[in-house]
């Protein structure tokens, strides 16, 4: 079923920051098909509405994990859900991070803000198969230390380079300060044999992709996760168009060779 949501129960909630929560969900009966890293579900808050949310971890079994940031009516409703509450789920939708194409390559996983959420399943997949890939670098930017997601997990991603940088440090912050691209000079990768997975605000992704290509990474190996208004997720509502792409179908993960000419046209 792709149009009517399936009921899922919140079995765990973990507050990541003051406005972001990770919900673990289990189906009441029928479960959605398996998700791949980078794909998304439509999450329905009863009577309020539906939003696309990427899968932020892919545990074994039927459990779904999604990280939601309260920014609008629907996401606020999801954010308030307690353990035992019910949501409606549709999916999986969209393209996934192309890890098959990245095999043997050095990997740059570059996240801005909540962009780390769709990338976490890709990091998990790479760590589960350490010999399938070259060097893994995880670079994440956040607004402030209080806005950092999955902070406890960063040490487990250090293989060989994993760093968080913030725009606005507090007095206790001893980590990096600045935009995420400033970390690229220190990452361990051979540009010609590198795949980059990038997710964050569009301006951040454009700046990051330009920098990577300038350093010699092939544009088609810079994978970005794009976002547009989305209503149906099944390719019928027309909202998620970006030029020739229907992002619910042809995205969200798109190679920068395809994305660049579209993102460079204002208001496309």
């Amino acid at each position: 079923m792709t149009l009517a949501p399936l009921p899922y129960r919140v079995v765990d909630r973990r507050d990541e920051t003051h406005d972001t929560v990770t919900l673990s969900l289990e189906p009441a009966g029928e479960a959605l098909g398996p998700f791949a890293p980078g794909q998304f579900a439509m999450m329905y808050a009863f009577g309020v509405g539906e939003v696309p949310v990427s899968v932020s971890r892919i545990p074994d079994g039927q459990r779904l994990t999604h990280t939601v940031r309260a920014v609008g009516a629907v996401t606020r409703a999801l954010w308030t859900l307690r353990t035992g509450a019910w949501v409606g789920m549709r999916g999986p939708f969209g393209t996934c991070w192309d890890l098959a194409a990245a095999r043997g390559n050095d990997l740059l996983v570059i996240a801005g803000g909540i962009g780390i959420a769709p990338l976490r399943p890709a990091i998990d997949a790479v760590l589960a198969e350490p010999h399938g890939y070259g060097r893994l670098n995880v670079l994440a930017g956040a607004r402030s230390p209080a806005d950092l997601l999955y902070r406890n997990e960063f040490p487990t991603w250090e293989r060989p380079f994993s760093t968080v940088t913030v725009d606005r440090p507090d007095d206790d912050w001893t980590g990096r300060v600045g935009v995420v691209t400033t970390l690229l000079g220190e990452a361990h990768f051979t540009p010609a044999d590198t795949t980059a997975l990038v997710c964050g605000p569009e301006v951040m992704m454009r700046a990051t992709a330009r920098d990577l290509i300038h350093r010699g990474v092939r544009p088609d190996r810079v994978q970005v996760s794009l976002e547009r208004n989305m209503r149906c997720a099944t390719g019928h509502c027309g909202h998620c168009q970006l030029g020739p792409l229907l992002l619910c179908r042809d995205g969200p993960v798109v190679g920068y060779d395809r994305a660049e000419p579209l993102l460079s046209v204002r208001e496309l």
């Binding site: 406005d19 509405g49 939003v51 696309p52 920014v71 609008g72 009516a73 629907v74 996401t75 606020r76 801005g112 803000g113 909540i114 930017g141 956040a142 607004r143 806005d147 725009d167 964050g200 605000p201 301006v203 951040m204 208004n229």
Partner: peptide, 15 residues
């Protein structure tokens, strides 16, 4: 401030 809250606090502009 790309990672900041989108839109105005009252607007609730996101989905």
């Amino acid at each position: 401030d790309l990672y900041g809250p989108p839109g105005s606090p009252e607007g609730g502009a996101g989905p």
